[in-house]
Simulated scan of single mutants.
Amino acid sequence: MRRITRITTVGIASAALALSVTACGGNSSDAGSGSDGDKAAIAYDIGGRGDQSFNDAAYAGLAKAEKDLDIQGSEAEPSDGEGDADKVQRLTELARSGNNPVIGVGFAYAPAIKKVAPKFPKTTFGIIDDASVTGENIANIVFNEEQGSYLAGVAAAKVSKSKTVGFIGGVETPLIKKFEAGFIQGVKDTDASVNVLPQYLTQPPDFGGFSKPDLGKAAAQGQLDKKADVIYSAAGLAGSGAIEAVSKAGKWNIGVDSDQYQQKGLAPYKASILTSVTKDIEDAVFNLIKSVKDGKPETGEIRYGLDKNGVALSMSNPAFADMKDVIAAVDKAKQEIIDGKITVKTAP
């Protein structure tokens, strides 16, 4: 029997009790112990499950592990306006309940994992998109987002008719700047005459730019008004608003993290999603869970780039798959990046 228990910061103590009562495959652990890999948990980033992007990709990895590895999965949702103390409490309860590994989805979990991981030395903690916090029981799952974004820039420059394309970042952080940097470089290397309009929805410490579709929609409309005919959004749930606006304008979207052409929540707009810069978060999560279950837990930096298909451009939209000249340009750029002939910038 496998079960998913959803935990939020509000009422987390009672949720932890529920876990210990309903869980199949282990009792709550003390601070020095971990499960044998029969229970695994993911703690979501801003926007939570249902963002049609980053968090949903992590969930897919957990769901795959439940099916293929016969593990019991738990999910923990973020709360509005939460701080590091809330994340510390969430990760502590997940570890104390016997989950192993416990995976924080997003760099925002770094301070919490730094505090919690040493208290549970037999539990593996994974963190996606952060390599700053390290430890013997910490797995840093990171991606070369700039490489996939470069390919998106190549595609955008090739299909743009107005010679103007847009980039929307959810929050102006070093991680999202990697998306911007790669995209702009790919555009300019392909056609220097194409103008790129970069825009961020919020600035730290306001991370609402990852969770508010209305902000994405307004930003996209502003770029459409400036004649952008291809818009690449790296904004989590907020990106869905941009996708809606671009679709209604009859222009091209480039999605992010998941293959957004395939996301059910975006089905009304799928025809406008030319391609997506995918990160293989699903397999990264699954691989970490499997490593723990196999008794050989992954730790340290685990990097996914173009060379391992850890980042890529999706080909689900038949319209994109039929653009032979665009695909040829993308394939050429991909090979040159892998061969080291092109070095992609990580900052604009």
Rank of each mutant, 00 (worst) to 15 (best):
V133G: 07
V116T: 04
A112R: 06
K119T: 14
K114Y: 12
F120W: 00
I113Y: 00
V142E: 09
I113Q: 04
F143S: 05
E136V: 13
A108T: 14
A139W: 13
Y109S: 08
G135R: 01
K115C: 00
P111F: 06
A110W: 08
K115Q: 15
D129A: 10
T124S: 10
N140C: 00
F107K: 12
N137H: 02
K114V: 13
I113G: 05
N140I: 06
F125L: 03
P118W: 04
D130S: 15
I127P: 11
I141S: 11
E136G: 13
P118Q: 11
V142D: 09
P111N: 05
K119L: 15
N140W: 12
T124M: 06
I138F: 01
F120A: 00
V133P: 06
A139M: 08
P121R: 08
V133Q: 13
I138S: 02
Y109C: 00
V133I: 14
I113R: 03
A112D: 07
F107L: 04
T134W: 03
T123P: 04
I138M: 02
D130T: 07
I127R: 12
P118M: 01
A131R: 14
I113E: 00
K114E: 15
A110M: 03
D130V: 03
A108S: 13
T134P: 11
F125M: 00
A110P: 10
N140E: 05
P121W: 10
I138P: 02
Y109E: 03
E136A: 14
S132G: 15
I141T: 08
P111I: 03
A139Y: 08
F143A: 06
A139Q: 11
N137I: 12
I138E: 00
N140V: 12
P111C: 12
A110T: 02
A117H: 04
P111Q: 05
I138N: 00
T124A: 01
V116F: 02
D130G: 09
D129C: 01
A110D: 02
N137S: 10
K119H: 13
V116I: 13
G126Q: 01
T123M: 03
I138A: 04
S132N: 13
T124E: 04
K114I: 10
N137V: 14
V142T: 15
K114S: 13
K122R: 10
A112L: 12
K115G: 00
F107Q: 06
A117P: 06
D129K: 10
V116L: 05
K115V: 15
K122T: 05
V142K: 08
P111L: 13
K115A: 15
Y109P: 10
S132Q: 09
I141Y: 10
F143K: 01
A131G: 11
F120C: 03
Y109M: 07
Y109R: 01
F125V: 05
N140P: 11
